[in-house]
Computed example of a mutant assay.
Amino acid sequence: MAITPDGKQALSASRDTTLKLWDLATGEVVASFGSDGGLDCCAIAPDGVRVVAGDRSGRVYFLRLEGLGTGET
């Protein structure tokens, strides 16, 4: 799990193959990404936009949180 730099959202990696972005004020899922394998880790860059996640097979996913309520457009 990782928290965005502004503290408003959390990113969770799960062995159910999903990466979810949560709104911490409402507890709702803002966005979801599916992978081919169970996700073991995730991190958010200090800019609050770039994300990296890793799955159980060794794949690494690079994502951008743009236009998802993160303050970026």
Rank of each mutant, 00 (worst) to 15 (best):
D36I: 12
T17N: 11
D55T: 00
L24K: 12
R56H: 08
L21G: 04
G34H: 15
S12E: 05
R50H: 13
A31V: 14
A25T: 14
G58T: 03
D16S: 03
V51Y: 00
K20V: 13
S14W: 03
I44P: 05
R59C: 10
F62K: 06
D23S: 14
G48Y: 00
R59Y: 13
V49T: 11
L21Q: 02
G37Y: 08
R50Q: 10
L11D: 03
L63G: 02
C41V: 06
A43C: 06
Y61H: 15
V30F: 04
Y61V: 07
A25W: 08
T26K: 13
W22L: 11
T17D: 13
I44E: 01
A43S: 07
S57H: 15
L63F: 01
A31W: 09
A45V: 00
Y61G: 10
V52W: 01
Y61F: 15
D40G: 13
R56F: 06
L39I: 12
L21Y: 08
S32F: 05
L11P: 06
D23C: 08
P46L: 00
E28S: 15
V29C: 13
S35R: 09
A53F: 06
L24R: 14
T26L: 12
L11H: 07
S57L: 14
V60R: 05
G38T: 11
V30Q: 08
V30T: 14
D40I: 13
E28F: 04
D40L: 13
V29I: 15
S14C: 11
W22K: 05
T18I: 09
D47I: 01
L63K: 04
C41R: 10
R50M: 11
G34K: 15
D23V: 09
L39N: 09
A25R: 12
K20N: 10
R15Q: 10
F62W: 10
A25S: 15
F33V: 15
V49I: 15
G54H: 05
F62M: 09
R59Q: 14
I44F: 01
I44Q: 03
C41P: 03
D47N: 13
V29F: 04
G48I: 00
V30E: 05
G27W: 08
V60G: 07
A31I: 12
V30G: 08
E28I: 08
S32K: 04
G37H: 08
S14D: 11
L11I: 01
R50C: 10
A13N: 10
G38L: 05
S14L: 03
R50Y: 03
P46V: 01
W22V: 08
D36G: 15
A53G: 10
A53W: 01
G48T: 00
I44V: 13
L19N: 11
T18Q: 09
L39H: 11
S57I: 11
K20G: 06
K20A: 07
G27E: 13
G34I: 12
A43T: 05
G58N: 07
A53S: 11
D47W: 02
L21F: 04
E28R: 15
V51I: 03
L11R: 06
K20C: 14
F33S: 09
A43Y: 02
V52K: 01
D16V: 07
S12P: 10
A53E: 04
S35Y: 07
G34Q: 14
A13T: 11
F33H: 15
S32V: 13
C42I: 01
L11K: 04
G37C: 04
T26C: 08
V60L: 14
V29L: 08
A43K: 02
A31C: 10
F62S: 11
E28G: 09
